[in-house]
């Protein structure tokens, strides 16, 4: 998902979740979290809980703002004013989602600049999905339908996360995310009623995005480091594989409505399980993209760093202006 790199070992050598020491305070904390009690910003919490949340929330925040880039690619080429205003509103939402999440991470005692620095130096991860290119207008529809659809699947349970500031940010985000998925489906439905070329464009986009979207849910449960403690702490409520299955089950009938197929010969309804079966995921591709070797990793990071560097003079000028105004007010008083 947007935080799929949570399944990697901690890169800064911080204590792994498995080696958490067990003091009485920690046991009491685990009990409380297990009972579904909410932890607030200044409450005592184990260091490993705090670090896990900083990593997860910041990965999530980075994904929101990097996610603005593939869509920004199509703002000037949207086919109508209506579609352009919708796309702009969606991209603005993603920026807002990044803000809510950065603010939630900052309540854990880490500064915004530290978080951004970790992104810009490649220390922090963001979702692998945003390292794929948006080649046609249908990609914008597929991002809304599938990428945001997968995100919603993952984010709804996070509204009940044990950390209050994160849970509240997720409630706000989920309310807005529904528009993102619906506008995507609406866009694709419009193309599906269009010409053969437009229908082919939709099918091509689904073919390219389907597997990377399934990878968004992260490694299989058995390969997911850190999952168990996150579940115990109430940070995570549903496992990667369960969420992926939920997503496939919900999405296949929607694809039938659009008249598209999915690029998986093993995809079929399993009457006995009451779920769709689907083929094996190419984890080599997944790890390649997560580790920086996807189609657009370098370009995405370079765009973020350039935006930050080129905005430096604005940030400095605004601070200087505020200081000057404050000095004037003091002098006048």
């Amino acid at each position: 998902m947007y935080t799929q790199a949570m399944d990697l070992p901690n890169p800064d050598g911080s204590p792994s979740l498995a080696s958490v020491d067990s003091e009485a305070r920690e046991a009491a904390f685990n009990d409380r979290a297990g009972r579904g009690e909410i932890v607030e910003a200044r409450d005592w919490m184990p260091e490993a809980y705090r670090k896990t949340l900083v990593r997860q929330i910041s990965q999530h925040a980075h994904s929101e703002i990097v996610g603005m880039l593939p869509e920004g690619n199509w703002v000037t080429r949207a086919p109508s004013l209506k579609r352009k205003t919708i796309l702009l509103a969606k991209i603005q939402d993603e920026g807002g989602h990044g803000l809510y999440l950065y603010a939630a991470a900052e309540t854990l005692g880490v500064s915004r600049d530290e978080l951004l620095n970790a992104l810009h130096t490649g220390k922090a991860k963001y979702s692998s999905i945003f390292n794929y290119p948006t080649l046609t207008w249908a990609d914008i529809g597929v991002i809304g339908w599938l990428v945001d659809g997968a995100a919603i699947m993952n984010q709804v349970p996070l509204c009940r996360c044990s950390y209050g500031p994160y849970a509240r940010a997720m409630v706000r985000i989920c309310k807005e995310e529904s528009f993102h998925q619906r506008q995507g489906f609406d866009l694709l439905l419009t193309m599906a009623k269009g010409t053969d070329a437009q229908r082919a464009m939709v099918q091509d986009a689904v073919n390219r995005w389907w597997w990377p979207v399934l990878m968004m849910f992260g490694p299989h449960d058995k390969d997911s480091q850190n999952s168990e403690l996150s579940m115990k702490w109430g940070i995570k409520r549903i496992t990667n594989d369960e969420l992926r299955q939920q997503f496939v089950d919900a999405t296949i009938p929607q694809g039938e409505l659009l008249g598209v197929t999915f690029p998986d010969p093993e995809l079929r309804w399993n009457e006995a399980r009451g779920h769709y079966d689907f083929g094996p995921i190419d984890w080599t591709e997944f790890w390649n993209v997560v580790n920086g070797h996807g189609p657009l990793n370098r370009e995405r990071l370079a765009a973020r760093v350039a935006a930050w560097d080129e905005g430096a003079w604005v940030r400095e000028a605004a601070l200087a202006h505020a200081a000057k105004q404050a000095a004037r007010e003091r002098a006048a008083a």
């Binding site: 807002g96 803000l99 809510y100 706000r172 940030r315 605004a318 202006h321 505020a322 404050a326």
Partner: peptide, 23 residues
């Protein structure tokens, strides 16, 4: 409803309006 960074009060109001009242 949330937090944000801003250089001064006027900018904080403007940004709060942009981020927290889009709907």
């Amino acid at each position: 409803c949330g937090s944000l960074h801003a250089a001064d009060g006027a900018m904080a109001l403007q940004m709060a309006r942009d981020v927290y009242t889009r709907r």
